[in-house]
Design a protein around this nucleic acid. Structure first.
Lengths: 221, 221
DNA sequence: GCGCTAGTTTATCGATCGATAAATAAGCGG
DNA sequence: CCGCTTATTTATCGATCGATAAACTAGCGC
């Protein structure tokens, strides 16, 4: 037992093309930083990758540049434009549009790695999150408010501008879905196992609440 | 300019009673760790307190013990039993109870320090959050479900047991309020400035949605 | 005022981290 | 099969962290 080498997979050193190795490092870094946070050590990352720590520095001159690459890989271009068009596609009932969107969004965006690294970045003071929220409000929440108005027969945005309180009503549904995954992946707490049923319930309650009484475009108290 | 001492407040060393000093350290640690996270360095904490770093180790033998003291200070006994009785007090309309509760809860619990340290602890893998969620579901969310059932004329919990899907409907409101403060204190993003109006809107949408269609105690699809 | 207690500081250790330089060897071209 | 390129490893540095030991001094009691 003592003095023996660990030899997890192959002890032999393996030469990969720079492209392959870089991809392995980036993907390993995403998984590793999602678990350990950005205060995770480069030596542990290297160990999980089965390489030595200085090798990382051949591909990424500093740890910070590797982190920024992780940001880029996870967040840049992750928003699919068709999601925006799906929300405004009035050939489908709004209920079906919302269920379809959040099912796709949960699968593609709200993953273990995404949720945790997003939160780590926010706590570290990155402006990444604010930029993402701007994107979300512009591409999803504001259009959603317009669709709810249309469904309720309320004035259009041109007739009555979007208020911050109305925007919060769109956050009402988005926050609930998002927090479902925070509880699942960050708190690692038990959540409703049937996500399909969960999202349908959330959409139904949201639409019923928003259409029956919650709509106050002029911000009247 | 060069070579001079910084001398922020008083350069003179000040002797405090152990009780006072300990309280200052704990309060300073809460503020500091809320900003920097638990990977924040003891030297920077000491500098903010205006003392030297080894002094911390006279009051807390290890950094970890100081962190656990911060947990204790922030989370243990923070839940007020009267919040649970407020929710079930049927002499008030459920709408008023919810608004009153979340106003008090936001003031007392959902502070900058609480939200951020709660999230840091969760990402670090502490079981603190799961225990808090158990408390929340037992003392707040499950009773709230019972109140919504009563308001809708649905069967009692004794007649039809609480389902996980129904519990998610209570998370619907709680997640929205919680995420409002996540956006405010963690993302440091712009949120609706009028919290009073925000919470009233959330409660109204939630009750309308839950009472009109969202109530399915038997979990029927 | 004087001395002792103990709160506080100075000095420093060992471990560990990010990062660098030099040695090693895998694997393709000839 | 041999030699060169370069991907990878070994060895190590300087900085910094948590933590410890010893020196210092503020301030209460007599």
């Amino acid at each position: 037992m003592t003095g023996e080498k660990v030899e997890t997979t192959t002890d032999r050193r393996q030469r990969l093309s720079p492209g392959e190795r870089e991809r392995l490092i980036v993907e390993g870094a995403i998984t590793f930083f999602a678990e350990a946070g950005f205060s995770g050590h480069t030596r542990e990352l290297a160990q999980r990758l089965g390489v030595t720590q200085p090798l990382l520095y051949r591909y990424f001159p500093t740890k910070q540049l590797l982190i920024e690459r992780v940001y880029e890989e996870l967040f840049v271009g992750r928003w699919k434009p068709e999601w925006g068009t799906l929300i405004t596609d009035r050939s489908l009932p709004l209920r079906e549009r919302l269920i379809e969107f959040y099912t796709a969004y949960a699968n593609d965006a709200l993953t273990y790695e995404w949720i945790r690294i997003y939160m780590f970045a926010a706590l570290a003071g990155e402006d990444l999150n604010r930029r993402y929220i701007d994107l979300l409000e512009g591409q999803l929440l504001a259009p959603l408010c317009a669709e709810i108005r249309a469904a309720a027969g309320a004035p259009t945005m041109a007739e009555s501008p979007l208020t911050t309180r109305e925007l919060e009503s769109a956050w009402h549904i988005h926050a609930t879905v998002y927090y479902y995954f925070v509880r699942k992946f960050i708190y690692e707490s038990k959540v409703e196992a049937n996500f399909e049923a969960f999202i349908a319930d959330v959409v139904d309650r949201t639409l019923d609440g928003a259409l029956s009484a919650g709509l106050q475009p002029d911000g009247a108290s």
